[in-house]
Design a protein around this nucleic acid. Sequence first.
DNA 1: CACTATACATAGCCGGGCTATGTAAATTAA
DNA 2: TTAATTTACATAGCCCGGCTATGTATAGTG
Lengths: 163, 163
Amino acid sequence: MYSGGMPTSLLSLLGDLVSVNQRLTRLAARATGSSESPAVWRTLSVLNSGGPMRLGELAELSRVAQPTATKLVSNLTERGWVNRLADPDDARASQIAVTTAGADALIAWRDELAGAMLPLFADLHTDDVAVLRRAVEIIGQRADAAADLAPGAPVTAPPEGQS
Amino acid sequence: MYSGGMPTSLLSLLGDLVSVNQRLTRLAARATGSSESPAVWRTLSVLNSGGPMRLGELAELSRVAQPTATKLVSNLTERGWVNRLADPDDARASQIAVTTAGADALIAWRDELAGAMLPLFADLHTDDVAVLRRAVEIIGQRADAAADLAPGAPVTAPPEGQS
DNA sequence: CACTATACATAGCCGGGCTATGTAAATTAA
DNA sequence: TTAATTTACATAGCCCGGCTATGTATAGTG
C-alpha cells in the first residue's frame, strides 16, 4: 500500500490544478495581442526543445492526433517557422525542424506573454516564486512521463486478449 | 522598490508556466474519455463557483467574447446542465444557473480526470503536494485579480486620456 | 514478388474562438 | 413623453484546432 499521503485531497488537488490551468490558458490567450493560437506556440515549443523530429513523433509529444499535427506543421511551414527536410533513410517521412525565424518568434511571444502577465505576479514573495518554479518542474516531469496515458482508447483494436 | 527577487528569472518562469500549462491542457484533454470540450467544463466551473450570473458577466469571468459565451450557454442548455431564468429587473438579460445535473456532471468529470491523472502524481512527496496546492492557490488568486488584463485592446474606443 | 505494416496526407466533420452587426430593452435628454 | 443613446444579448459568418475515417506510397517480410 501507499504509505502516507491523502489520496482524496490529492484527487481534488488534481481537479483544481486542471481547473486553474484552464483559467490560466484563457488568461494567457488574451494577455498578448498575438493572433496566433496556443497550438502554434505549443507545437513550436515542442519542436524547439525536442529538436528536429518526424511528424508522428511530434504528434505524440504534442499529444494530438497525427492529422492535427499535419495541419499545424503546414501552418507553421507557411509562416516559415519550421521546415521539412527529407529523411534519407525513409522516403515516407521528413524531419521537421524549427527555423531561426521560428525560434525568434517563439522567444518574442514568450517575452511578450511574460511581460503581460508580469504585473499580476510582480508582488510574489520569494518563497512563492520558488513554489511556482518547483510546480512547473513537477508538472513538466509528469507530462514527460505520461507517454502512455490514455492516448485515446484503441478504437480499432480493443485490448482484447486474442490471437 | 521591490526588495529581492529576480525579474529576469520571474519572466522566464512565467513563460515556462504557460508552456507547461499548455502541455497539461493537452494531457488533461486526452486523459478522460470525455468527448466534451474543455470549454464546457471551464464554463460550468465558472458558473458553479460564481453562482448564477448574467451572460456578460460569465463571458468576462470566463475570459471569452460575449458571442462565444452565447454559444457555450446554448450548448450547455441543450445538455440540461444550465438553465436561464428571466431577470425580473431587466428584460434583456437572464440569470444563468447550473442545474443539479450540471453540477453532477462537473463533479463526475473532475473525478474521472483526477483519477486518470492520479497515477502520474501518485508518487509525489508530501512537500511537492503542498507545492502544487500552493501553486494552484497562487495562480487562482492572480487569475481572479486579472479582471482588467488586456481583455482585448479596445478597438472601437482607444484609451484616449480623458475623464 | 505478394502481403502486411508503417508514415503520412486528405477529406470532412464539429466545436470554440473571434469580429461585425442586428435587435430589443433600459436609460437619458429634450 | 418621446427621441436619442447606451446597454445586453443574439445572429451571421469566418478561421483554426481537434477528431475519425480513409487513401497512398514507401518499408519491411514471408
